[in-house]
Structures are given as structure tokens and as C-alpha cells.
Design a protein around this nucleic acid. Structure first.
Length: 480
RNA sequence: CGGGGCGUAGCGUAGUGGCUAGCGCGCCUGCUUUGGGAGCAGGAGAUCGGGAGUUCGAAUCUCCCCGCCCCGACCA
């Protein structure tokens, strides 16, 4: 056990240990006092804010409005939709006492807000002219999960939940896909994660949904992570909460509703999709610091480089580059290099007396084998946005190649079991839930989704040999 | 809930009945030092998870309780 405990366990040795050590050592989170709770530290919260801003902008640009609904929901609301309550009952946190007395009706801490928003929708919608009703809220929710994991499955987590009501199925389905597209875009263009969009099989559907769509990303251990979901709820919640409108024909009609969410789990996705043995690798578009400047030198030269670093930072910030100057006096340059690599900063600029004399900074990227390149100070502000964009593209390309390299089209069981030990399998499946369960029991792999863009094809179930369902191949993988 | 493991300073740990609980990192002070995880000196910091018991004596043995982590089942 000679490992230098300043670093993290290598991914190849123990991916799980790597992840757990990293989220702590990179100062993303700390453990909360209650089981499964997580303190999101400033560095991770900034990342969340950046992600949030990108998603919120898209939500608003597509006509949705933000609102806020209560955290506490009467327990009876959950019971109004049978499948919904069945799905969520085991993981509810319930408030039974308040104000020093036992409550007449317990209040659940929201695990999701379909019910309370549905109740409000029924009050707000009366005419077809009120539709569509396009709402979103940014909130925290609580789900008492049996096995918590930082960002991926914490007892309390932050998310955005869209809730919309429409006149008919076609309109609601279009909304469901619109939301899914936003998620694909944010994952791909902001987080540099080339997710696959697809539909969930019935066994993986949201409790109370008619159909559930997902985006699935591949992590660097080959496992899949569900990074966002969009549900077409049919008239299930409209029936339960009496969400009706009078049509232009004067008839009373049930609304068709949708809900869709993306959560702080996305931070976990970024960590596991890009990180390496040195630590985090953050896509510039969500990096709290895109550039870190490390001034080198002490005494008089140190003052000169610190001053130059501040000036450079001001110039870069004016050019829209999130820049941080590491002025911690007690730490050596070498320590800082390792530290910022651990924390995943895309671009590091070293600024020492030699560089200052040459009018340059030494630039190194978090990944890639370019080594350290001199960057002229005079043109750094013009050059860096391009460098960052290039790094962002590089990460997406790398992640795409990784995913493609670990996705295998398989037609027999041995090939299937081999494929899901290192990555994803594209296979035919019969659509039988019991067959899904057997696959899971034997390989730990589950159907992640039926890819939307998968080519039409028919074949025989990779497990039982029955005729394939879904009209195309299904992605199977081990998942978080 | 099943399987495995762990609770000793902020973190990581040593310590299988015996003196004042040891070490590393971190922290504080001073000096020195700064281009890949600096050095020296001094210093602060621990009701050894909690309770009961055995014993002349318990971090160490016994019993009970609590909590946490990892692997599964549940899930974004």
C-alpha cells in the first residue's frame, strides 16, 4: 500500500473507488450528516449553475415558464394515481408531525411533482385556449434510495422538472420529444457526452407514464447512465386530477400531459464520461474555471508574475473566458499543477519570469499530447476561446469514439455476455419482461433504450430466441 | 433486507490487557524556498462511535446499541 494518497485510485484498478475519492478530493462534495445526503461544494455548484443556465435558456426559448410548487404534498395526492403511488411509495419521506403535533394527514416530501402540479393544472385549465400549458420548476426532491452514491443517487437531489398539458396525444408527444431533444443537445454540446436517445421498455418506464424516453450516456467503465428522461403521461394524471378543458366543439376533454427532468446526476455523468487517472476532465462549457493561471516565482519576480497574471486574467475575463489566478503563496507550482489537473481545468497557463521576459505564458491542456506550448500574452484573449472550443470538440469526439468502440452488435448469447462486460450490446429482444429479468440476473445488463434512430430490423431474441419486438435492436448494458 | 468491511485528531492510519495513545498528511508560528506534489525548527489538536460489564488496570476482552462505507436487490 505505497500509493501516494494525494492522488486517486486509478480507474482501471477500481472505478468505483476512483469516483468516490475524486468527488471528495476535487472538492465537489462532502458527505451530509444524514445518510445519503450530499453537500454540493462551490466548485460543483458552479458547474451545476452553468449547466442549469444552458438548460434553462433552452426551456424558456421553447415557450416554457418557470414556477415553483410546494415541497410538501398531501399524502392523498400520491394515491390518486395508482401506478404512480406504487412506484414511489417505497422511497417516500413523510412528515407526520409538525408544530409539535401529529398531523391529521401526513405530508410527503416531494419525490416528483406530477401530483401537486396536476392539481393546480386542473384549476388553471378550462378551455382549449389555455393549452398548451407549459411549466417548469427548478427544485429539490427527496427519494429514500437504498444505496446512495454521490450525484448519481442521493437522497435529496436538485433537478428541473417540466410539466405540460396538451389537447391531444400528438401535441403531448411532440412536447415529449422536444424536451428529449433539449437533453440531447445539452448533453452533447455542453457536457460533451454523446448520448443515445431512445424509448424505455415497459419494464423501465416511469411510474404512471404511458411511455418514457431517455438519454443514455456511456461512462468510461463502459456502463450506461440515464442522464435525462421525458415522459408522455397520456391521460393518466389528467384522469386522476381532473385536468380537463372544453374543446372548440364544446365538449369536455381530458388533457394529455408530459413531464421531463434532468438532475444533478448530470454532474456525475460529466465526471465519469471524461475523467481519468489524474482526476476530473471538465468540458470547457461547464468548467467553473476554463483557464487557471499559475504565476511562478517569489519575491520581486513573484510580484511581477502575479501582477502579470492578474492583468492577463482581466483581459481573458473581458473576452468571456472564465479565468482563475492561483495566488496561494504557500504552495509550490508543482503542487498547483497537480491540483488543477485533479480538478479538471481545461487549460493551464504557467507564468514565470522566463515566460514574462519572452512575453508568453506556457499553456497546457488537460488532455492531449501537445505538451506545453508558449502562448503570446498579447494575443491570448483572441486565441483562448478557440482553444477552449477545440478542447470541447475533442472531448466530444473522444467520447463518441469510445462509445462506438465499446458498442457491439450481437446476435448470440456468448457474444452478448461478452459485450456487456465491457460496454453496450445492440441486440434483438423479445420484449418479454421475464426474459429481461433473466438477462439481468445472469449478466447484470438491462435494456437501456430502444434507440430512436436505430434502423428498422427484425430478428430473434438474443436470450430466448423468440421473434424480436420493437422493430429494431435494443441497447443492453450494465447501468448506474 | 442479504453478503463483506470499518469506526482512534480535520483526513489517512499504528497500536491484541500495562508507563504520558504513536506516526504521516493537513493546520498554526518562524526562517528558508518556488518551472511537476519543497526544507528545517517549534506548536496546537483525541472524552479511542455510545453504553454496560470483566479486571488492580481496557482503544485492546465480553455483551448490547448506534453510525458509516463497499457489493447486490430499489431508483434520476
Amino acid at each position: 500500500m505505497a500509493r501516494d494518497d494525494r492522488g486517486v485510485t486509478p480507474q482501471s484498478e477500481d472505478f468505483s473507488a476512483w469516483y468516490n475519492e475524486l468527488v471528495t478530493k476535487a472538492q465537489l462534495v462532502d458527505r451530509g450528516p444524514a445518510k445519503g445526503t450530499m453537500v454540493i461544494r462551490p466548485y460543483a455548484y458552479r458547474l451545476w449553475e452553468l449547466l442549469q443556465a444552458e438548460l434553462d435558456g433552452r426551456i424558456k426559448a421553447t415557450g416554457h415558464e418557470n414556477a415553483y410548487f410546494p415541497l410538501l404534498i398531501p399524502e392523498s395526492y400520491l394515491r390518486r394515481e395508482a401506478e404512480h403511488v406504487e412506484g414511489f411509495a417505497p422511497e417516500l419521506a413523510v412528515v407526520t408531525h409538525a408544530g409539535g403535533k401529529e398531523l391529521e394527514e401526513p405530508l410527503v416530501v416531494r419525490p416528483t411533482s406530477e401530483t401537486i402540479i396536476g392539481e393546480m393544472m386542473s384549476k388553471w385549465i378550462s378551455s382549449h385556449r389555455d393549452l398548451p400549458l407549459l411549466l417548469n420548476q427548478w427544485a429539490n426532491v427527496v427519494r429514500w434510495e437504498l444505496r446512495p452514491r454521490m450525484f448519481l443517487r442521493t437522497t435529496e437531489f436538485l433537478w428541473q422538472e417540466g410539466h405540460t398539458a396538451h389537447r391531444d396525444e400528438a401535441d403531448a408527444m411532440a412536447e415529449t420529444m422536444l424536451a428529449l431533444d433539449m437533453y440531447v443537445e445539452v448533453a452533447r454540446d455542453i457536457c460533451a457526452i454523446p448520448v443515445v436517445a431512445g424509448e424505455k421498455t415497459p419494464g423501465e418506464r416511469f411510474a404512471g407514464a404511458r411511455s418514457t424516453f431517455t438519454i443514455e450516456g456511456m461512462m468510461r467503465d463502459g456502463k450506461a447512465l440515464q442522464a435525462g428522461t421525458s415522459h408522455y403521461l397520456g391521460t393518466n394524471f389528467a384522469t386522476a386530477f381532473d385536468i380537463r378543458y372544453t374543446s372548440d366543439q364544446g365538449r369536455q376533454e381530458l388533457c394529455h400531459t408530459t413531464s421531463w427532468g434532468m438532475t444533478t446526476r448530470m454532474i456525475g455523468a460529466v465526471i465519469m464520461a471524461h475523467g481519468d487517472d489524474k482526476g476530473l476532465v471538465l468540458p470547457p462549457n461547464v468548467a467553473p474555471y476554463q483557464v487557471v493561471i499559475v504565476p511562478i516565482g517569489r519575491g520581486e519576480p513573484g510580484e511581477a508574475t502575479a501582477g502579470a497574471a492578474r492583468d492577463l486574467a482581466a483581459t481573458l475575463r473581458a473576452a468571456g473566458v472564465r479565468t482563475h489566478v492561483d495566488l496561494r503563496p504557500q504552495l509550490s507550482p508543482g503542487f498547483k499543477f497537480n491540483d488543477w489537473e485533479l480538478r479538471g481545468v481545461p487549460v493551464r497557463l504557467e507564468l514565470g519570469p522566463r515566460d514574462l521576459a519572452a512575453g508568453t505564458a506556457l499553456m497546457s491542456l488537460r488532455l492531449g499530447d501537445e505538451g506545453k506550448q508558449p502562448l503570446p500574452l498579447a494575443t491570448a484573449a483572441e486565441a483562448l476561446p478557440g482553444v477552449l472550443a477545440g478542447f470541447q470538440e475533442f472531448l466530444l469526439r473522444r467520447a463518441t469514439e469510445f462509445r462506438e468502440g465499446r458498442t457491439t452488435t450481437v446476435d448470440d448469447w456468448p457474444a452478448f455476455t461478452a459485450a456487456v462486460t465491457t460496454g453496450w450490446a445492440l441486440a434483438f429482444h423479445c420484449g418479454d419482461g421475464r426474459c429481461e429479468d433473466e438477462i439481468k440476473a445472469e449478466t447484470a445488463a438491462t435494456p437501456r433504450c430502444i434507440p430512436l434512430d436505430g434502423p428498422p430490423a427484425e430478428g430473434h431474441c438474443v436470450k430466448c430466441g423468440s421473434p424480436s419486438a420493437y422493430g429494431k435492436r435494443v441497447i443492453f448494458a450494465r447501468a448506474y
